[in-house]
C-alpha cells in the first residue's frame, strides 16, 4: 500500500527536480565565472523545441539531446558576444534572450504541436526498470543519471581541477586573473557556452521525457526557479542537488494533491506554491548571510581591462 503510493511520488519528485538541476548546474558554472545569464528560460525553450523537432524527425532521442545542446549553446554564444565582446548590460541581454527564446521556440515548434515522439529507452534491463519497487532506483530516463554524474563532475571540476580554479579566479577577481595572463573573456565564453548546453539538456527533459510533447512556453518559468536555486545553493553544486530535490517535492505536491482529490485549498494556490516557496527560501537565505556575500565578487560586472 505505502509502496504503491510512495514510489510514484518519489519518481515524480525526481522528474520535476532533474531539469531544474541541470539548468541550475550550468548557470552555477556561468555565475562562478562572473557572468549572470538571465536567459536561462529562453535557452531552455530553444533546447526543448530543438530536441523535440530533431527527435520527431530522426526518431532517435539522443540525437535530439545533442541538437538541443548545440542550439541552446548557440543562443548562449549570442549572449556571450553581446555581453562579453560588446560589454552590453548582462541583465538586459539575459532578458532579451528569454523574450527571444519564447518567441523563437513558439515559431519553430508551430508544426510540432500535438505530435508525440518515441521516448528514451531505459538504461537498465526491464526486470529492474519495471520492477514494482526497484524502479524507484532503476526506472528513470538516462538523463536523470546523467544529471547526477554531472553534479559530481562539476563539483570536482570547481574544487579540484586547475581549470576550475582559473574559472573561479576569473569570477572572483577578473583583473588579477587578467594580470597573470589568463584570458578572462575566453574563460567566460567557455562557461557561458557550457551553461547554454546544460540549459539545452534541461529543456529537452521537458519535451522528451516529462510530457513528452511540445507546447508553447513548455518550461513555464522553471528557468527562473533554476536561477533562484543557484542563490539558494550558495553557488555550491552539492547544495544545488539538495535544493533541486526540495523544489521538486514542492512542485510534486501540486500534482499529487490534485490526483488525490485534495480540495481543502484552491488548485491555483498549489500551482503558485513553487514560486511562493522560492521567494520564502530566498528571503531566508538572503537574510541569514550577514556581511560577506556568497556570490562571486565579479558577478554581473562587465570586464574592461583598460579602463
Amino acid at each position: 500500500m505505502t509502496e504503491s503510493l510512495l514510489i510514484p511520488i518519489i519518481m515524480t519528485i525526481v522528474g520535476a527536480a532533474t531539469p531544474i538541476l541541470l539548468a541550475a548546474l550550468g548557470e552555477l558554472v556561468v555565475e562562478k565565472s562572473g557572468v549572470l545569464n538571465l536567459g536561462l528560460e529562453g535557452m531552455m525553450l530553444i533546447g526543448a523545441v530543438t530536441g523535440f523537432a530533431v527527435t520527431a524527425t530522426t526518431g532517435y532521442a539522443p540525437l535530439g539531446v545533442v541538437a538541443a545542446m548545440i542550439a541552446a549553446a548557440a543562443s548562449a554564444g549570442l549572449f556571450g558576444f553581446l555581453t562579453l565582446t560588446l560589454t552590453a548590460n548582462q541583465v538586459a541581454t539575459g532578458l532579451a534572450l528569454t523574450i527571444f527564446g519564447i518567441g523563437l521556440s513558439a515559431l519553430a515548434g508551430e508544426n510540432y504541436v500535438g505530435q508525440t515522439v518515441d521516448v528514451f529507452g531505459s538504461v537498465f534491463p526491464a526486470a529492474l526498470a519495471e520492477h514494482p519497487v526497484l524502479r524507484v532506483i532503476f526506472g528513470y530516463s538516462p538523463l536523470v543519471y546523467v544529471s547526477l554524474l554531472l553534479v559530481a563532475a562539476v563539483s570536482w571540476f570547481l574544487r579540484k581541477s586547475r581549470a576550475g580554479l582559473i574559472l573561479r579566479a576569473v569570477g572572483e577577481s577578473d583583473l588579477s586573473a587578467h594580470s597573470i595572463g589568463y584570458s578572462v573573456i575566453g574563460v567566460r565564453y567557455m562557461a557561458v557556452l557550457f551553461g547554454g548546453a546544460m540549459a539545452g539538456i534541461a529543456g529537452c527533459f521537458y519535451s522528451l521525457v516529462l510530457t513528452p510533447m511540445w507546447a508553447e512556453q513548455l518550461t513555464a518559468g522553471r528557468g527562473w526557479i533554476a536561477l533562484a536555486l543557484v542563490v539558494f545553493a550558495g553557488w555550491r553544486p552539492m547544495r544545488l542537488l539538495l535544493g533541486a530535490y526540495l523544489f521538486g517535492a514542492v512542485m510534486t505536491l501540486e500534482l499529487h494533491a490534485k490526483a488525490a482529490g485534495f480540495s481543502l485549498v484552491a488548485p491555483e494556490f498549489l500551482a503558485a506554491m513553487p514560486y511562493l516557496a522560492t521567494i520564502a527560501v530566498l528571503a531566508i537565505i538572503s537574510a541569514r548571510k550577514t556581511g560577506k556575500s556568497l556570490a562571486p565578487a565579479c558577478l554581473g560586472k562587465p570586464f574592461k581591462p583598460s579602463s
Binding site: A88, L95, A96, I99, F100, I102, L104, A106, E216
Partner: peptide, 22 residues
C-alpha cells in the same frame, strides 16, 4: 505569418540595441 513572429522581431530589436550600444 505565425503570431510568435512578433515576439521574435521585438526581441531582435532589443538585441540590436544592446549590440549597437557599444
Amino acid at each position: 505569418l505565425p503570431a510568435a513572429a512578433t515576439g521574435v522581431f521585438q526581441a531582435m530589436m532589443l538585441f540590436f540595441l544592446l549590440a549597437t550600444d557599444v
